[in-house]
Design a protein around this nucleic acid. Structure first.
Lengths: 335, 335
DNA sequence: TGACTCTATGTAAACGTTTACATGAAATGT
DNA sequence: ACATTTCATGTAAACGTTTACATAGAGTCA
């Protein structure tokens, strides 16, 4: 790989002149500029980002730390973020922690060594790794989707409580009264907020005796939906509507229903949460409380870039609204 | 951020000694080692990967260049690759070209400037960018999923021809004779190979007059499935089975069928290709020709690492087998 | 004309590591 | 007792950029 020095020699100018041409800064006569550009072409020279980063003390890279790349929700977030970063000439180091705190810690350390200019993180578990490693450093950090207490960082969250309320309200307004919620509240604070919102809606309709169905939080979402739904279907009468706290869980519910010959939405209404692409693909297509995934990613990227550009930018908390997307998996209660 | 020099001063040793304990190389007495480690803790020092990479002339980063992060198939590939890279202490620079050749070119240039040690690429379009930029450099390169002629690189492909044959054979053996194929052969060589395989199966059953239904290749996969299926359903009699060349296309077909009140698989058998997670989630679950996504990613990662470690490693071509996954969307022809 | 300001280029010192080489002290072999 | 080898540490030169500073010719202004 050719270097700036070789380009300089080839063009018979100094190192500084080559640098000026590359960065388009300072004065350089048309004559020399042309010679330098010719030399770069001749040697198919590409400057080393490593050397530049070292000297400039900025890497133009940001770390994206997510729990699971293979979950469509996080993949969609990553996608939105990548777009903004590319536009702003930043690279993205993608780190998938596999919902494993040790791995998250390992990645956090890597990002620091890599001297990324900022980090966007969807923390895994208690996020101790982030606390420890980012704690005292003044590295721009944005927490996305999952909150973490006691961390000096911007946050991009979603109004989960309102979403839970809206989802439940939708079912209640359709006339359903025997409604159950499926989801693991231990999974993250977000789930607890969704449950709280759903409860609030139930209370408004004078329904008090409903607890969410909690199936061991260690089950993956799809399996949890299957198991919990099967459990509910054994009750008699079984619920006429189910609010699953994630779309993937809702799909598990729909499969369980199909196995029992329960037709959705004729015999059972199902509503999910997230609005991943899968939701629109299901048959019947899934009614869901949509998270503004694209906006979340973009906002997070915007915030991290802002913090990089203005070092004394005060961390910002943004809470984005969810919105109900009514599709074909919910229907007015026929009873 | 503290530097090695500060650690050295704090521990009252030379730079070289600090470097030796960090890299665990050469001789260093227990006494000094302890002092250095204490100093590193005290300053919460993390070595700069930038400086190290510059000096060592290796970045321990590899670039992953894919057409679209938001397509589950590519997300799954990225996921598999990330796993292997992490295990081997390599970082991953994720580049999503959005199926846009200009953007692919921009990213290829970035990767070179970033001095990645290797590249895994699922080329977009004609892949001219890869030709131009990687062409003469001796940068380890692995082509994944989509082939590209005239490039000195390893390849990880899938036996698309055999997959097309197997998928079609499955339908034929179920007794279907009026079968149509949906997919855009212009999309990539892979599609043409799948079509060729399917034709081969048809010929073995003495069926010659079937051409694949080609709907404008610029339509996204889902929309293409919908449009093509609707077109087919207007024929009478309409086909009793449809082979969609990707899973997402198959889902479009299933939606079109649902809208017409055609029940799958009772009135129409549908088979897809890829076996993305969505396939198992559909109701009915989708029979499909599975690509070994995980194995493809792992193999690609393995190859690129091998080429990095052994610079005169000869590029390898590996062709992985597809296999038929029979689920609920296909059924024996009732006629 | 002398004092400035532009314009244009070059020199050399960083940035934070790794590592070849140098230097000694201690252990080992004869 | 002396020549080797092994152990332990340090010095300084890279790696490929950017950039502060120096230099100097050419305009501009009084």
């Amino acid at each position: 790989m050719s270097t700036m020095r070789e380009v300089a020699e080839h063009a018979e100018v100094s190192l500084a002149t080559v640098s000026r041409v590359i960065n388009n800064v300072g004065y350089v006569s048309p004559d020399l500029r042309e010679r330098v550009e010719a030399a770069m072409r001749a040697l198919s020279y590409q400057p080393s980002a490593l050397a530049r980063s070292l000297r400039r003390q900025e890497s133009r890279a940001i770390g994206l730390l997510i729990p699971q790349l293979d979950q469509p929700f996080f993949a969609a977030l990553a996608f939105a973020i990548e777009g903004i970063l590319f536009e702003n000439d930043y690279r993205m180091l993608l780190c998938s922690a596999q919902e494993d705190e040790a791995r998250e810690r390992a990645y956090a350390e890597i990002l620091i060594r890599q001297r990324v200019d900022g980090v966007i993180a969807v923390p895994t578990g208690q996020g101790r790794a982030l606390q420890d490693l980012m704690g005292n450093r003044k590295l721009p950090l944005v927490l996305l989707d999952r909150d973490l207490p006691d961390l000096y960082a911007s946050r991009v969250l979603v109004n989960n409580d309102q979403g839970g309320y809206d989802g439940m309200m939708h079912l209640l307004k359709l006339g359903h009264r025997h409604v159950r919620v499926i989801g693991a509240p231990t999974y993250s604070i977000a789930m607890q907020q969704r449950i709280a919102g759903a409860r609030r809606a139930l209370r408004e309709f004078g329904i008090h005796d409903h607890d969410p169905i909690i199936v061991s939080g260690t089950l993956p979402q799809y399996e949890m939906g299957m198991a919990a739904a099967n459990h509910l279907f054994d009750e008699s009468p079984h619920p006429t509507a189910i609010f699953a706290l994630t779309d993937v869980t809702a799909v598990g519910v729909m499969h369980a229903a199909a196995q029992r010959g329960l037709s959705v939405p004729a015999a059972l209404s199902v509503i999910g949460f997230d609005d991943i692409p899968l939701a629109g693909f299901m048959i019947p297509s899934l009614t869901t409380v949509a998270q503004p995934i694209r906006a979340m990613g973009q906002e997070a990227a915007r915030l991290v870039l802002e913090q990089i550009e203005y070092p004394d930018f005060e961390p910002e908390h943004v809470v984005l609204p969810t919105h109900l997307v009514v599709r074909d998996s919910t229907r007015v209660y026929p009873g």
